[in-house]
């Protein structure tokens, strides 16, 4: 939980989620702002591989000591991999939200959905707004 950071190579969703597009797949996670607002994440059960996620809809949840928060999908698709390591070490979501703290990898349904997401500058402008 060091200084706020919003990498340039990611696309951002207004519910404080990021997507990193790699070919026809995308990796999801939560932003620095989201993990800071949530506080220490203490429990995460990844969703099942093979489930479909819908853009703007919750696809999983993260629990901090105090509360549970729904996590929204920035893009639609089918989950092809989940970050199992977070089951034992959910704190990576706080310490490395864009790296070890990734949540799921999906096969993207509709690449045109990317147009609705923000780049780093637009997301930071939204946070400052």
């Amino acid at each position: 939980m060091n200084a706020a950071a919003y990498p340039e190579d990611l696309k951002y969703h207004p519910e404080h989620d990021w997507a990193r597009v790699e070919g026809d797949e995308a990796v999801f996670g939560i932003t620095w702002y989201a993990q800071d607002a949530l506080g220490e994440v203490v429990f995460y059960e990844p969703p099942a591989v093979g489930t479909t996620v819908d853009k703007d809809k919750p696809y999983t949840e993260l629990e901090s000591v105090k509360a549970v928060s729904e996590i929204f999908a920035p893009l639609s698709g089918e989950i092809v991999a989940v970050n199992e390591a977070l089951g034992d070490a959910p704190e990576a979501i706080n310490s490395d939200p864009y790296g070890e703290g990734w949540l799921v990898r999906i096969k993207v349904n509709d690449p045109s959905e990317l147009d609705a997401l923000m780049d780093s500058a637009a997301y930071q402008a939204m946070l400052d707004g």
């Binding site: 939980m1 506080g39 220490e40 203490v42 000591v65 105090k66």
Partner: peptide, 9 residues
């Protein structure tokens, strides 16, 4: 205050 920077735990 609900928590300080080091966190609840």
């Amino acid at each position: 205050p609900v928590q300080y920077p080091d966190g609840i735990t």
